[in-house]
Design a protein around this nucleic acid. Structure first.
Lengths: 110, 110
DNA sequence: TGCATTGCATAGATTATCTATGTATATTTG
DNA sequence: CAAATATACATAGATAATCTATGCAATGCA
């Protein structure tokens, strides 16, 4: 994940939960759309590259947290991702976890 | 870094800045002391192992952000770490950065 | 005496992410 | 209309932080 205004080391580890959270909010999304939405929601601070995004998506699918669905847009295949039931549960857990993480950081760096 | 109550993936990338911040607050510290202080300050949530800590310290030294000083405690060598002037500047930068990071996470997961 | 704690360290594996690249269609603009 | 840019998928290989597991030795304590 490439980040404009901060060193990238920190943001690592948050990509999968960011993806899960977007899928929770938008039901189904495709890769490029996810990159754009992250950029938008972070006011341009987060720029996820394909080399980070697709491996992350493949891992989520491997773990059966998301499933895919292809759709033809003109001559192009568009691959949508959506949460599985297992993925919905895990997403909730991970969002709770990230809130704890934010609290921990605030405690440590207050 | 081993974490009790959350998945470890998130905390990765924060270890070096945590060390820097402790050194800023305590002038000089040795490895074991750092692990105990992190555990304490995080109310037991963070448990840094030697396999994470020492490589992190060596890298900080390699980058000339910290310097070491040996002291004999009985028959044992204790290795203290302290910030270099360069390290002090970098620490400040990194703390500012982590505050931005916390804000970003709050924005994204509000 | 034996166990837990203190304290250093390293080798090797894991794994997420990054860089760089490839391919192709669609759209905008000069 | 040609060229540039945006859309959209993907993968190979490198990087690097961290983890697991291990080793050694001194100290404190029950």
């Amino acid at each position: 994940m490439y980040i404009c205004s901060m060193q990238s080391e920190l943001i690592k580890g948050t990509l999968s939960v960011l993806i899960l959270k977007l899928l929770k909010e938008h039901k189904k999304m495709y890769g490029y759309q996810i990159t754009q939405m992250l950029k938008e929601q972070s006011n341009g601070e987060l720029m996820v590259r394909e080399g980070s995004l697709y491996p992350a998506l493949f891992k989520l699918k491997d773990d059966e947290l998301v499933e895919t669905e292809e759709e033809m847009i003109g001559k192009r295949v568009r691959r949508y991702y959506r949460l599985t039931p297992k993925g919905e549960i895990e997403t909730q857990r991970r969002i709770t976890e990230i809130h704890s993480f934010i609290s921990l950081l605030q405690t440590l760096f207050k």
